[in-house]
Design a protein around this nucleic acid. Structure first.
Ligand SMILES: [Mn+2]
Ligand SMILES: [Mn+2]
Ligand SMILES: [Zn+2]
Ligand SMILES: [Zn+2]
Lengths: 125, 125
DNA sequence: ACAGTTTTGACAACCGTTTTCATTTTCCTT
DNA sequence: AAGGAAAATGAAAACGGTTGTCAAAACTGT
């Protein structure tokens, strides 16, 4: 797997915010690329397995993807209006998750933390 | 809306962990209740609107529900093995979310924080 | 060039959720 | 109690995102 995986990754790297599979598919097609929706899904899934993209679920249950800017563990601050996304580090949250888990006897911890809000430029309008 | 909403709420209150709509529907039917899947979905949605149940999405995108033990804002510590769930308060996380959002000029903040791990009794085996 | 392997994409199948709509139940006014 | 408006219900169809199928196409090394 390589040709189309790179193409999908490239789209994601050029994107400002999270994108859905269908969304990516549509853009590639209208750019003249001859790619199938299935392949887009496969590429996204492979990229995610390799830790090169983050995936998160919208409240409506759609999976949206974004190329990670940093290789390190991080979280997201997403504008619910325009989709703009900041990657933020959260040492405090990490510690909290570990502590609260230990306190309840839970091991082998992972966590999901997403913050949603209205970004500065969207607040103005 | 009332009869079936209460029934669904009751199922949830008796449950130890998060339950899916289909799951609840199956249990109610095999208990002899004459209820439709649609009504279960409507009940869950109403209960969630009223803040009486929490909903979260599994990694597979299925919505799972649980009656809130506390009326206050809280988060979840979920055993990925057996589904056991603890409700945990996180003043530190709340502060962190507010701070990180303000720092980036985001307003009108909400956040989702879920911690997954293996609970004490599941670790033993 | 050849055979073997991997990748691809049109299409169908899937699964959870929502919509539709006709029927039933509940509630309110006589 | 009777009648009628309003809300609730459920079977079935529609929907939307995702995954599976399978034959064709693109690579791989020899
Ligand atoms: Mn990221
Ligand atoms: Mn809860
Ligand atoms: Zn914005
Ligand atoms: Zn457990």
């Amino acid at each position: 797997m390589s040709r189309s995986r790179d193409a999908v990754h490239e789209i994601l790297r050029r994107s400002e915010s999270f994108r859905s599979a269908q969304d990516i598919f549509t853009e590639m097609r209208s750019d003249g690329a001859k790619i199938g929706l299935t392949t887009v899904y496969r590429a996204l899934q492979a990229l995610n397995d390799d830790g090169r993209v983050d995936v998160l679920r919208t409240d409506e249950g759609e999976a949206v993807y974004r190329a990670c800017a940093s290789d390190l563990h991080h979280h997201h601050l997403v504008c619910r209006r325009c989709g703009r996304t900041e990657e933020v580090a959260g040492p405090d949250v990490e510690r909290w998750a570990e502590a609260i888990a230990a306190e309840h006897g839970f091991a082998d911890i992972t966590h999901t933390v997403e913050v949603f809000g209205t970004c500065a430029s969207c607040t103005g309008r």
